[in-house]
């Protein structure tokens, strides 16, 4: 405490009090909202697209862990996703998620587990001139492949997506407001993210799918933006479209973030023009 004493007089007491009550070491040292939110497969990103950011707020020498819950409700389907993620050193991220896809009016659902890993390869989201770049993998496993094989999927049990993402914040770029963009390239065979299996009778090879996001921070901790994610079209039975959304995300603090979006999923398993509301909550213990 002696070191506080050569401080200017009026701040000695608060400094001592702060010294007693604050945590011994830094924990969540990245800046607010740099966690991103959680995308529908459990990786840190926007709502649909994985970004180059690591989940949570862990910087060098720190770790972070959190859980999330997401619901997307469209005309004929409801997709619920639950999962958890862990990251450390602002370098590595691992995640586990379960997707539950309900077909409205029918009993039963399709469940898919997704295990993700991501590593930041280079750059810093905010401070470097070049974007932050990360590479990631999502291993996907269908708990029951009956529907996938019925609709013509080549593989009705598991698939792997590999992606590279570049994400960049441009400080004060739009009339003083921060701008973020992300571009992702994903190699995938998944039909509707894997819910309808992997590969199909029309195409059974990996394809490179671009995915993009852009947002503006309207005030501290409030972002509005849009995303687009292109997808393969492997099944002869159904045509498959890209996903798009417009969203607002709120980061009241570094413990939680909340996203609401209007999502347009296009044609899904024979039902055209599927669109509706998306809501997602991520909470970090640390």
């Amino acid at each position: 405490m002696a070191t506080y004493l050569n401080w200017k007089k009026k701040t000695v007491l608060p400094a001592v009090v702060a010294g007693l009550v604050s945590l011994p070491a830094l924990a969540d040292s990245r800046l607010l909202a740099t966690s991103g939110v959680t995308q529908v497969e459990g990786s840190a990103g926007g709502g649909l697209v994985p970004w180059a950011v690591m989940s949570g707020y862990a910087d060098e020498g720190e770790w972070s862990a959190g859980v999330f819950h997401t619901v997307t409700d469209v005309q004929d389907y409801r997709l619920t996703v639950d999962g958890a993620s862990y990251s450390r050193d602002n370098r590595f991220e691992i995640s586990a998620a379960q997707q539950r896809f309900e077909i409205k009016g029918l009993a039963g659902d399709i469940r898919q587990e997704i295990y993700g890993a991501k590593v930041r390869v280079l750059g810093d989201l905010i401070y470097d001139a070049a974007p932050q770049v990360a590479a990631g993998i999502q291993y996907k496993r269908l708990l029951d492949g009956d529907i996938a094989s019925l609709v013509g999927a080549e593989n009705d049990s598991s698939g792997v997506d590999i992606y590279v993402s570049a994400t960049k914040v441009h400080l004060a770029a739009l009339g003083g407001y921060h701008l973020l963009w992300n571009a992702t390239l994903r190699a995938t065979k998944a039909n509707q993210m894997g819910l309808l299996g992997y590969g199909g009778d029309d195409n059974n090879s990996y394809e490179l799918m671009p995915e993009v996001s852009a947002l503006v921070l309207l005030r501290e901790g409030v972002a509005v933006g849009a995303e687009y994610r292109s997808k393969p079209d492997n099944l002869s039975a159904f045509s498959e479209d890209g996903y798009a959304d417009v969203f607002i995300a709120w980061f009241p603090n570094k413990q939680v973030n909340l996203t609401f979006a209007y999502a347009d999923l296009g044609s899904v398993a024979g039902s055209e023009d599927q669109n509706g509301l998306y809501a997602s909550l991520t909470a970090y213990f640390r």
Binding site: T3, Y4, W7, K8, T11, P14, A15, A18, G19, S22
Partner: peptide, 8 residues
């Protein structure tokens, strides 16, 4: 001055 980790 209030931040223990920085004031040091």
């Amino acid at each position: 001055s209030y931040d223990q980790n920085i004031v040091k």
